[in-house]
């Protein structure tokens, strides 16, 4: 996957836009195609009595077609054609924050993986620690402090304040 944001310097707005279109178009084609193929597994039915697969198949094909349009637009831009749509990505985007973004997403996933087993407190702590670690100026120690503080705050709000029935101790801990 090429990325429109990196490789700054010689990049002109048109080339950035071209790459953005190619990536977006490709993604839509892949997703639309995937949904369409998946929809074929279900009963399509007829236009009179549509089965569960009918609408997803139609939508999937539509998405793939729109993706092809976007991709084509990207190809035109890449070849240096000026199209009717002079698109410029407004903000000068920086490089993809792989490490920081990855930590953030990992934090969310960890929560889903551990919340049933280890309970809300441990899961929240793990999530906030990973998220805080992705902070700009946060050292591991500072992240620990932030995570601890936020965990207490969240427990106070959700468990004490709102009295939601959340698993305090997970099943792995006998809760």
């Amino acid at each position: 996957m090429t990325d429109p944001g990196t490789g700054a310097g010689t990049d002109t707005g048109a080339r950035r836009a071209a790459r953005a279109d190619l990536c977006a178009g490709g993604t839509f084609i892949a997703l639309g195609g995937g949904f369409a193929i998946g929809a074929l597994q279900y009963d399509l039915g007829t236009a009179f009595q549509m089965g569960p697969g009918y609408v997803p198949l139609a939508l999937g094909l539509t998405l793939a077609a729109l993706g092809a349009l976007i991709l084509g637009h990207g190809v035109l831009l890449a070849l240096g054609h000026r199209t009717a749509e002079h698109e410029t990505l407004e903000e000068q985007a920086g490089p993809v924050p792989w490490r920081r973004g990855g930590l953030l997403v990992a934090g969310v996933v960890i929560f889903g993986l551990t919340v049933d087993g280890l309970g809300i407190a441990v899961a929240t702590f793990a999530t906030t620690f990973l998220a805080a670690l992705s902070g700009h100026r946060n050292t591991p120690l500072k992240a620990l402090v932030i995570a601890a503080g936020l965990t207490v705050l969240c427990l106070l709000i959700f468990v004490v304040g709102l009295q939601l029935s959340l698993p305090l101790l997970g099943s792995w801990l006998g809760g």
Partner: peptide, 9 residues
């Protein structure tokens, strides 16, 4: 740096 971990939580 404190705000966005809170949002995620």
């Amino acid at each position: 740096d404190v705000l966005f971990p809170a949002i995620i939580a």
